[in-house]
Design a protein around this nucleic acid. Structure first.
Length: 228
DNA sequence: CGAATGATACCCT
DNA sequence: GGGTATCATTCGG
């Protein structure tokens, strides 16, 4: 079963019965690399969300790397504040923030330790719990691949808000990361491009190709401009 | 293309 | 303490 074999139709990714497959957690060591390395490495891994009544699972298909305070596009650019404090801690914790007064975005704190680097989860593809995700998104029909094609859509579909910010993704039951048992053995095709919505950071930072996606995934938030 | 909608950071009194 | 510009987005016209 290939990671990117799904077409752009409404077929949910239920090819592997995850209720029968014990999922292995992503370890803290797996998240201890720098932001670019971790952003690439997280592609294809699963987000598991227990909302109290149900387990929702989704596959990460798009990420962005944010380096520490020197990265003018990162929230860490203002230094350590109450909001961003978790990023200045050890890898493996969730940094969730509210944006535009109504949307949430999920980040995974990575390495180097205490240097405020993190990876923004920009899009996921539903794997199980699709019905619940649709309820949360409040959208009727529409292809499953578009349900969580965006950072705020991802949080809405999975029921993630800033009350979960700071939790340890390596040990918490409510929200964690798992290796995909259905992942192909071969390394996935990865595309990259400019990060979205960070022009305010100036060309030196906004031009860096720190947005990553699984090539040909139907769940990407926006197309990647290929070339170069 | 523009509105929605509120926390946050930063500057001022 | 208070005022305000800004925002790692989404949806509908």
């Amino acid at each position: 079963m290939s990671l990117t074999a799904y077409s752009a139709d409404d077929t949910p990714s239920e090819h592997t019965d995850l209720t029968l497959t014990p999922l292995r957690r992503v370890s803290r060591d797996d998240l201890a690399g720098d932001a670019v390395r971790t952003a690439r490495g997280l592609l294809g891994t699963l987000i598991v969300r227990h909302d109290g009544s149900q387990r929702l699972v989704a596959r990460i298909v798009e990420t962005e790397a944010y380096a520490g305070p020197t990265d003018r596009a990162s929230h860490a650019r203002a230094g350590r504040t109450p909001r961003t404090a978790v990023m200045f801690g050890p890898p493996g914790h969730a940094y969730v923030y509210l944006i535009y007064g109504m949307h949430h975005c999920l980040n995974v704190v990575c390495g180097p330790d205490s240097e405020a680097a993190a990876v923004l989860i920009r899009a996921v593809e539903p794997v199980s719990g699709l019905t619940r995700m649709r309820e949360r998104r409040g959208q009727g029909a529409g292809p499953a691949a578009r349900l969580a094609a965006g950072p705020a859509r991802t949080c809405q579909a999975l029921g993630i808000d800033r009350t979960l910010s700071g939790l340890d993704l390596v040990s918490d039951e409510r929200l964690w990361l798992a290796l995909d048992p259905a992942a192909p053995s071969a390394a996935p095709d990865i595309v990259s491009g400019r990060r979205i919505g960070v022009d305010y950071a100036g060309p030196g930072w906004a031009d860096r190709p720190w947005r990553f996606g699984l090539a040909r995934s139907a769940a990407l938030s926006k197309p990647f401009t290929l070339s170069r």
